[in-house]
Write a protein that binds this DNA or RNA. Structure first.
Length: 826
DNA sequence: TAATTCGCTAGACCGA
DNA sequence: TCGGTCTAGCGAA
């Protein structure tokens, strides 16, 4: 009698004074709700030794509100693995609202409480270990019925849904599938932009299976010319209705690009103005605060905002683009050029009905939806894995911070092991933690100059492997055993139990092993010619979470924050890397550089076999889960001297046998340097490393300087990009980018905090400061640039440090070798 | 409601 | 006008 379906969403509704869990699932192309009445909201209360019985009696008598229903329905004493002598009571309620009242009353009474702030639906998923995106097996109870749902403020009464009562449910493996629809609006332009201020002109729709395959595309508009690929509807009202119908066609996912901040809010406003409804799955799209951002939550159906996905991929280093607009992403991630159509052009194309312009607009509108859909198809497999690990919906995992992912994982696994979670820290505790930072990694000062034959070694997953090897966990810290103190004391003086596995290392070990297995499987399949994207996504999901655990332990707002654990981890890391350095030196290598987990060995008279032998020797002496690996051999590498003297850390360039260049930390990889400086630097590094020749780069730099002086360099090469991190008035030091913004704002331009700014240093007044001459790119004419600035403050600093290593000076670059006056070109 | 620390550099700011 | 200090941003791991 069991049934199977794929789990999409979990929520709750209040029904006859009882909070009930509702799960949105999909099976064989049909979506419906499951209803579980057997799970109740609860929290834990801590009592002293032998005091729980008395407290339990007291709580059972208490009333947590006006009605007679506002009482605890059950108080149980439960064993807790981590509360020591204290006794723990689990207090359950009929309704979430009663729990909310109760926790306030407990606070007033000074009753110690735990896990009181975990949302009910999230609690349900964690406790039952259900995995959104994966299968569930449930036992139906009674017939399918049509019921009204009351899912908070956005719900609409009078609409009935297919719903099945269930008696039990558990997770199961099921291949993922689900129908998705991506949509995108184009709106009419106005000088003063407001959400919903002007009509929506066009909608594009792309639907199909979320992981790709055959798709249905539509673009529709109204009151404009009918052209190929464009449907003409009666008016905006019909456009909205048609969009709504598409969104309600049995979708599991709805995909947007920035739908959290634009499309849904726009539709809502327009619908209000046109006096009609805009409902998805029978409810208003609901605006939810997510950190500093807004998110749009739909009832049941998972709203996937591809822009949020890209932001997360950017944060975790999976992609690296300067901007995250859909055009840049399309090009950088999929290698597809995408033309941008600006708001004014959109309106013009629509109003004029000009066939060419309209065709371009239709194409643009459709490609937005296609690209958003593609991003979802590409990255959802990975988020599904994170959803499985953390038991959170895809709506959550595509928007969560990495700390949230780790915390959800820990909550889930702690519950499984009977460990009560620590409370979130209070604000003053957060401040305390923040003021007391943890000492981090060791970075060895490099030997400046050009080096030949370098072997780069690094530790695989250094921090996770240390945490596992030394069993570093809040629950194993400074245990009572004398033996552990003797055997497993860290350089910090803290020690960790060697007898019982800690919560954190246990989880990490499982994930690390799993990841190695997946990686090997993926590699094997790839060798056989099959690029298995799901395998890759799985191991990448594990990588993200694995790498975030150390950061989480040192994160001041974490429930499981542990200064001792985080600090012990880095202390051991410093010890291991320094030991490796001395071992390498003893083995006859010269160690040129090292940062956190890496070692750069100059091979001198040694062979590759010697490096392999060295690796073997080191690995034999390391704990089992730790491993030093070979990153690669490089024929040349360069480190440069700092302005202040001494060699610069975190800045180097390597070239391998095949001539491939790896540039790290240099201006070339920084977005806050202009292109001409970056490209010149790259060419110089390339020449210096590939041929070891040094005369050519000097000639090359002189040519660049000459072009700059002659005003030949185009704007695009001179743009410097910087993020506006706060409101202009909040800066104490007004840098060039802030000055440029303030000038633009005076001209009436609207710029939000968090925008990427492109600015140029113009000719301006020679005597004035750099900030005075900074202007946003859009206000600068071709040729209007301060050549002096770009030569002295961009190109020369980028190349001088490299060429200095070969005996050249600034003077050699700016003139024929003879020193001339500073401003000789003016 | 935000993962961590280490490190480099530019350019404003400020007092002599 | 000079030089030291501070603010700000971004990258490495």
């Amino acid at each position: 009698m069991t049934q199977k379906a794929i789990l999409l969403d979990a929520a709750y509704s209040d029904e006859n004074e009882v909070s009930v869990i509702t799960l949105y699932v999909t099976s064989k192309g049909k979506n419906f709700w499951l209803k579980d009445k057997n799970f109740h909201p609860y929290l834990y209360v801590i009592a002293g030794k032998n005091e729980s019985e008395k407290l339990a009696e007291q709580i059972m008598k208490m009333s947590f509100g006006e009605g007679k229903e506002e009482k605890a329905i059950k108080v149980q004493k439960i064993p807790a693995a981590n509360e020591g002598e204290k006794e723990v009571l689990k207090v359950s309620f009929k309704r979430v609202s009663t729990l909310v009242n109760a926790r306030k009353i407990f606070s007033e009474l000074g009753v110690e409480k735990r896990e009181y702030d975990i949302p009910y639906a999230k609690r349900y998923l964690l406790d039952k270990r259900l995995e959104p995106g994966n299968g569930v097996e449930y036992v139906p109870e009674g017939e399918e019925e049509l019921l009204g749902l009351n899912d908070g403020e956005g719900a609409v009464s009078g609409i009935k849904y297919s719903s099945i009562k269930i008696s039990s449910i558990k997770p199961m493996e099921m291949p993922f599938e689900g129908k998705a629809t991506a949509f995108d609006f184009e709106t009419k332009f106005s000088q003063k932009f407001t959400i919903g201020g002007e009509p929506i002109l066009m909608t594009s729709i792309v639907s199909g299976d979320v992981l790709g395959g055959k798709q249905k595309n539509r673009v529709f508009s109204y009151e404009t010319k009918k052209i190929k690929g464009l449907e003409i509807l009666k008016d905006e009202k019909e456009l909205l209705r048609e969009t709504q119908d598409e969104l309600n066609a049995q979708n599991s996912f709805i995909i947007t690009y920035n739908g959290d901040n634009f499309d849904f809010a726009y539709a809502k406003e327009r619908a209000k103005k046109l006096k009609q409804e805009f409902l998805v799955n029978g409810a208003q799209p609901k605006s939810i605060r997510k950190g500093l951002d807004n998110a749009i939550k739909l009832s049941g159906i998972q709203h996937i905002d591809a822009y949020q996905i890209m932001k997360l991929m950017q944060r975790t280093g999976a992609v690296n683009t300067v901007k995250l607009d859909i055009e840049t992403v399309s090009e950088k991630v999929f290698g597809e050029e995408k033309e941008k159509v600006y708001p004014k052009e959109i309106t013009e194309a629509w109003e004029s009905g000009d066939e060419k312009k309209l065709t371009r607009l239709v194409d643009y509108n459709l490609k937005d939806s296609i690209t958003a859909f593609k991003i979802a198809s590409e990255f959802l497999p990975m988020f599904i894995e994170i959803s499985k690990l953390t038991s959170q919906t895809l709506f959550e995992t595509t928007r969560n911070s990495t700390s949230q992912m780790v915390e959800d994982l820990l909550l889930k696994e702690a519950h499984f092991r009977g460990i009560i979670a620590p409370n979130k820290p209070k604000e003053n505790e957060v401040t305390q933690r923040t003021m007391n930072p943890i000492k981090g990694a060791f970075v060895k000062e490099p030997i400046a100059g050009l080096h030949e034959n370098i072997a780069v070694l690094d530790f695989a997953s250094l921090y996770p492997s240390i945490i596992i090897s030394h069993n570093i966990s809040p629950d194993t810290l400074n245990c009572k055993h004398k033996e552990c103190k003797e055997k497993n004391t860290t350089p910090d003086g803290t020690w960790f139990c060697t007898k019982e596995k800690g919560l954190v290392p246990e989880i990490l070990e499982k994930m690390l092993k799993q990841r190695l297995k997946l990686k090997a499987e993926y590699k094997k399949k790839k060798k056989e010619g099959h690029d298995d994207k799901v395998l890759f996504a799985k191991q990448w999901a594990l990588k993200i979470v694995l790498n975030s655990v150390y950061g989480y332990l040192g994160y001041p707002r974490a429930r499981w924050y542990s200064r001792e654990c985080a600090s012990a981890t880095t202390a051991l890391a410093r010890q291991y890397i320094q030991e490796t350095i001395s071992k390498a030196e003893k083995s006859g290598f010269e160690v040129v550089y090292g940062d956190t987990d890496s070692n750069f060995l100059k091979m001198l008279d040694k062979s590759r076999a010697d490096v392999e032998k060295f690796l073997e020797k080191v690995n034999a002496e390391l704990p089992e889960t730790m491993e030093l690996e070979l990153d690669g051999f490089y024929k040349r590498g360069i480190f440069v001297t700092k302005k202040e003297g001494g060699a610069a850390k975190k800045k180097y360039a390597l070239m391998d046998e095949k001539g491939n260049l790896k540039i790290v930390g240099f201006e070339y990889v920084r977005r806050d340097w202009c292109n001409i400086a970056k490209e010149t630097q790259k060419r110089v590094i390339e020449m210096v490393l590939s041929e070891g020749k040094t005369k050519e780069p000097v000639e090359y730099v002189r040519k660049v300087i000459k072009d700059l002086k002659e005003g030949k360099v185009p704007k695009s090469e001179l743009v410097v990009m910087t993020l506006l991190q706060r409101k202009p008035k909040d800066y104490t030091a007004i840098g060039p980018h802030v000055a440029a913004v303030m000038k633009a704002q005076e001209r009436g331009k609207k710029i939000d905090v968090g925008s990427m700014l492109s600015f140029i240093i113009t000719k301006g007044n020679t005597k004035s400061s750099i900030s005075d001459k900074a202007e946003l790119e859009e206000y600068v004419n071709e040729g209007d640039y301060d050549a002096d600035y770009y030569i002295e403050n961009q190109v020369l600093p980028a190349v001088i440090k490299i060429l200095q290593e070969f005996g050249y000076s600034r003077e050699d670059l700016i003139s024929g070798g003879k020193q001339t006056g500073l401003n000789s070109w003016n």
